[in-house]
Amino acid sequence: MTAQIAHLYALGCLAGVFFEIAVIAGLPLGAFTQGGRHRGALPRRARALAAAGIPVLILQALAILSAAGFPGLGWPRWTGWAALALTLGEAALARVSPSGEERAVRFPVALVMAGGAGYVLVVTAGQG
């Protein structure tokens, strides 16, 4: 069960990567990100911020997969806790966002992902 939850967390991160790529490409998704300041396509500077999130999401996914014992990773456990902290931070920011779209979509998704990451880290505590 732990491996499946870790894979679902990684899938959520992958969805986040595709979302960031869509934002960078100029799709009018501004209401769902960065506090909804830009209701349509994001301006160039905001797109650069979206691009910076891509490697972070990939590292978060790998950290939780590693915590679940995915072969070949073996990352330090603190990386999984850092991924959980970032996910909780995203949930908190989405929760207080002035954008109703961001609160309605990103908050529950980040909250579920944080629960999955927390489950993986707690269940695997003391292993390896």
Rank of each mutant, 00 (worst) to 15 (best):
Leu29Arg: 12
Gly30Thr: 07
Gly30Arg: 05
Gly30Glu: 08
Ala31Gln: 15
Phe32Val: 04
Phe32Cys: 03
Phe32Met: 15
Phe32Leu: 15
Thr33His: 11
Gln34Asp: 11
Gln34Asn: 08
Gly35His: 13
Gly36Gln: 01
Gly36Lys: 08
His38Gly: 03
His38Leu: 01
Arg39Glu: 13
Arg39Lys: 15
Arg39Gln: 15
Gly40Asp: 00
Gly40Arg: 10
Gly40Trp: 09
Ala41Leu: 00
Ala41Tyr: 10
Leu42Phe: 10
Leu42Cys: 00
Pro43Arg: 07
Arg45Pro: 05
Arg45Thr: 13
Arg45Ile: 08
Ala46Gly: 02
Ala46Ser: 11
Ala46Trp: 12
Ala46Val: 11
Ala46Lys: 12
Ala48Glu: 09
Ala48Asp: 08
Ala48Asn: 03
Ala48Val: 11
Ala50Gly: 04
Ala50Lys: 02
Ala51His: 06
Ala51Phe: 07
Ala52Thr: 12
Gly53Lys: 02
Gly53Thr: 02
Gly53Ile: 01
Gly53Phe: 00
Ile54Ala: 04
Ile54Tyr: 11
Ile54Thr: 13
Ile54Arg: 12
Ile54Pro: 14
Ile54Glu: 07
Pro55Ser: 03
Pro55Ala: 00
Val56Gly: 00
Val56Cys: 00
Val56Lys: 07
Ile58Trp: 10
Ile58Lys: 06
Leu59Pro: 10
Gln60His: 15
Ala61Pro: 09
Leu62Phe: 10
Ala63Pro: 09
Ala63Cys: 08
Ile64Asp: 01
Leu65Asn: 02
Leu65Ile: 03
Ser66Thr: 09
Ser66Lys: 11
Ala67Ser: 10
Ala68Lys: 03
Ala68Gln: 06
